[in-house]
């Protein structure tokens, strides 16, 4: 705690941290098979840090899982593996490529794999019989997320029904499920992008370097800057140029765009996030631009 105790007031980061730790302990106390979704992105890194704190000095009492689209940034995978080794947690990789090779999902014509992540995720949850799945989603990310519960009930198909959500009162979370059903748990629900960055600073959390400004070869598509990547090649009329950029979110490398930025330290990123006028998903995620209800539709299918 970084707060002077004399007035018995907690800072916003202390309050958010206390809430997230409480949620994680609740899940471990009440569920037999929790798992934490861990991609190496900043929100999941923060979530893993909170899990480390919640059970200290014991080890984190659950495995972590990465739904791997195969379109990765090397820096992100490296940090994923580093954290897993440091914390001695089990890493389960649910591979979209393997599912494509096995014929259980089909590669979309445009080569983007966001949509086929969902069946791969659901299969992996099923195979390992996970009953509670921690996700790093935040309510400030999207209008559909704003109505998500902290304990989000999913039926045996992993589907979210916005009209059939359980009321959540005080700090009481109802985790009762039947066989085959599951609960998605969102300990970062009440955090904003800025809270995440302030916490990264306070806790001195290491992030993949691509979150900070660096030079990169990019091209402009529909107003978004994409890195040249084996899965994301410019069209003939799209000019490739070098720019100072950073990533605000890190997802599938073929879908996630960079933003122009000079912010190469955590303090500069905080300044940038505090003054920016575009949401992180709006700026960088091709997958959410398709329609006004894109996120709502994907969540109904079982996406996070």
């Amino acid at each position: 705690m970084n707060t002077p105790a004399h007035d018995y007031q907690l800072s916003q980061l202390d309050l958010l941290e206390a809430e997230a730790i409480y949620i994680m302990r609740e899940v471990v106390a009440e569920f037999e098979r929790p798992v934490l979704l861990f991609s190496g992105g900043k929100d999941s890194i923060v979530m893993l840090k909170l899990a480390e704190k919640a059970f200290y000095p014991a080890r984190i009492p659950f495995a972590v899982m990465h739904v791997d689209t195969g379109h990765n940034f090397d820096e992100v995978l490296a940090l994923r593996d580093q954290r897993v080794a440091e914390l001695k947690v089990q890493l389960i990789v649910a591979s979209v490529q393997e599912a494509i090779d096995a014929g259980t999902v089909h590669e979309p014509k445009d080569g983007t794999r966001n949509r086929i992540q969902t069946p791969v995720l659901l299969d992996a949850l099923d195979k390992h019989r996970f009953t509670a799945i921690f996700g790093g989603a935040r309510r400030d990310e999207d209008k559909a997320r704003a109505k998500e519960r902290i304990f989000s009930f999913r039926d045996e198909f992993g589907q979210w029904d916005p009209k059939n959500q359980r009321p959540e009162l005080w700090n009481l979370y109802n985790g009762r499920i039947h066989t085959g059903e599951s609960i998605r748990v969102f300990p970062l629900s009440n955090w904003t992008e800025l809270d995440i960055w302030h916490y990264i600073k306070r806790e001195e959390i290491e992030l993949p370097s691509i979150y900070y400004a660096h030079e990169r070869e990019v091209f402009d598509r529909d107003g978004m800057l994409f890195a040249v990547h084996e899965m994301k090649q410019p069209k003939p009329d799209e000019e490739v140029f070098t720019a100072m950029v950073r990533y605000r979110t890190v997802g599938d490398a073929s879908l996630t765009a960079a933003v122009r930025s000079e912010a190469d330290t955590v303090d500069l990123v905080i300044d940038e996030v505090a003054s920016t006028r575009v949401t992180e998903r709006g700026a960088t995620r091709g997958d959410d631009k398709f329609s006004e209800a894109a996120m709502e539709d994907r969540k109904r299918e079982g996406y996070f």
């Binding site: 309510r139 400030d140 704003a146 109505k147 916005p162 009209k163 904003t192 800025l194 209800a293 709502e296």
Partner: peptide, 21 residues
């Protein structure tokens, strides 16, 4: 108003959480 049904019907059907600072 977040959900499709809400926009279509012009109503709010659930608690929505919002943030500002």
């Amino acid at each position: 108003d977040g959900l499709r049904a809400e926009r279509e019907q012009g109503i709010t059907i659930d608690v929505a959480y919002r943030y500002f600072a």
